[in-house]
């Protein structure tokens, strides 16, 4: 049937896109200006007794001339001839990537990038983002349905104004307000941080404290996501309500509940799937702003640290992960789309 061909076509598209991403990621971190070793030596604050020797060690450890960064040879000079090196580097880069080696972090030397990313940070981010995405998605759809069924009423207008306001508010500032009121003034929430399981005697006490710390960032993110998604949900429902088949369904004398939930919702959900697919990337990219404000030790905070410390290997790894998840979740969204909407399969 057409459906199989549709899947295959999408899969090929996704694989091509994935390859382009890998190449793009390789190039991006090689066109930047400046000399990374200087950045490390200048920033890390390590006691540098002998800069020359330290550089040699850096290059040995990181493989700066091969796997990570170009332009530098053994004498720490910027090489004018790029071509041979780039070829060589690209091969090494791909080889290492295939065995899951993303290099070694500058900042958390000598930890590996893959260890930094695929550890408790990823878990923290997935838990926080997953929960807030699900919560916001449900709230947005509920409010969107409510607003569209009372088109242009007071409820509708109030909801629009409120969500536009939250859309216009920087998410980190909402976080700052929560810290200010709930920690600084009232003292009902912790300042921040994400409790690690190793520091607790049993699972339940960790779980409770974890959730307690999660309230602040969770509320912040939910306010901001609902602001972004409400109008989309409302618009979709409105669009569907004006469709002819909805009029027909009503003329058929079906119960209004059936019209809303079977005929309208099914169609309005289709575009919302793309929204959800987009949100999947947040699962791994994390919310840099919110995590920074609340000191939530996830991938978003890692991104911030890595930019701050110019930890290129980690940034490269993060970017690759995010892009890969983006492509894969888009592919899955296409599949669901194809299953739900029979027209797409052709």
């Amino acid at each position: 049937m057409g459906f199989r061909r549709y899947i295959i076509r999408r899969a090929i598209d996704s694989i091509i896109l994935l390859m382009i991403t890998v190449i793009f990621n390789f190039i991006l971190f090689r066109v930047m200006p400046g000399d990374p070793t200087t950045a490390i030596l200048g920033r890390s604050g390590s006691p540098v007794y002998n800069p020359g020797e330290y550089r040699t060690r850096l290059i040995e450890r990181f493989g700066l001339n091969k796997a990570i960064l170009p332009f530098i040879d053994k004498d720490f000079q910027i090489t004018p001839d790029l071509n041979t090196l780039i070829d060589n580097q690209f091969v090494v880069y791909i080889q290492k990537l295939l065995v899951g080696d993303l290099g070694i972090s500058f900042n958390y030397f000598p930890q590996e990038v893959s260890y930094l990313i695929f550890g408790h940070r990823l878990l923290n981010t997935i838990l926080l983002m997953g929960l807030s995405i699900v919560l916001s998605f449900l709230i947005a759809i509920l409010l969107g349905t409510l607003a569209s069924s009372k088109f242009k009423s007071k409820t509708d207008m109030t909801l629009i104004f409120t969500t536009l306001t939250s859309y216009s508010t920087p998410v980190f500032w909402i976080g700052m307000l929560i810290v200010f009121f709930c920690y600084g003034q009232l003292g009902i929430l912790p300042y921040g941080g994400s409790p690690r399981i190793e520091e607790y005697s049993d699972l339940s006490s960790w779980g409770l404290d974890y959730l307690y710390h999660m309230i602040g960032p969770l509320v912040t993110l939910t306010i901001s996501f609902v602001g972004a998604w409400f109008l989309i949900a409302r618009d979709q429902m409105l669009g569907v309500f004006t469709e002819d088949y909805i009029t027909t369904a009503r003329a058929k004398g079906l119960k209004e509940r059936r019209v809303m939930f079977v005929h309208a919702r099914k169609n309005a959900m289709l575009p919302m799937i793309s929204v959800l697919a987009l949100a999947m990337t947040y699962l791994v990219s994390g919310a840099t702003m919110t995590e920074t404000v609340f000191n939530w030790n996830g991938l978003g905070l890692l991104t911030y640290e890595s930019v701050y410390r110019q930890d290129y290997p980690v940034l490269q790894g993060l970017l690759l992960l995010v892009a890969a998840v983006a492509i894969i979740s888009n592919f899955i969204a296409d599949l669901i789309y194809g299953l739900l909407d029979p027209r797409i399969r052709y």
């Binding site: 002819d244 088949y245 004398g253 169609n267 289709l270 739900l340 909407d341």
Partner: peptide, 20 residues
């Protein structure tokens, strides 16, 4: 509706829900 009076709308092409 539909039990006593049924209606064939102007826009025949879109009268059916595309996903059912």
């Amino acid at each position: 509706r539909w039990l006593d009076v049924s209606y064939v709308f102007q826009y025949a092409m879109n009268a059916f829900n595309p996903v059912m």
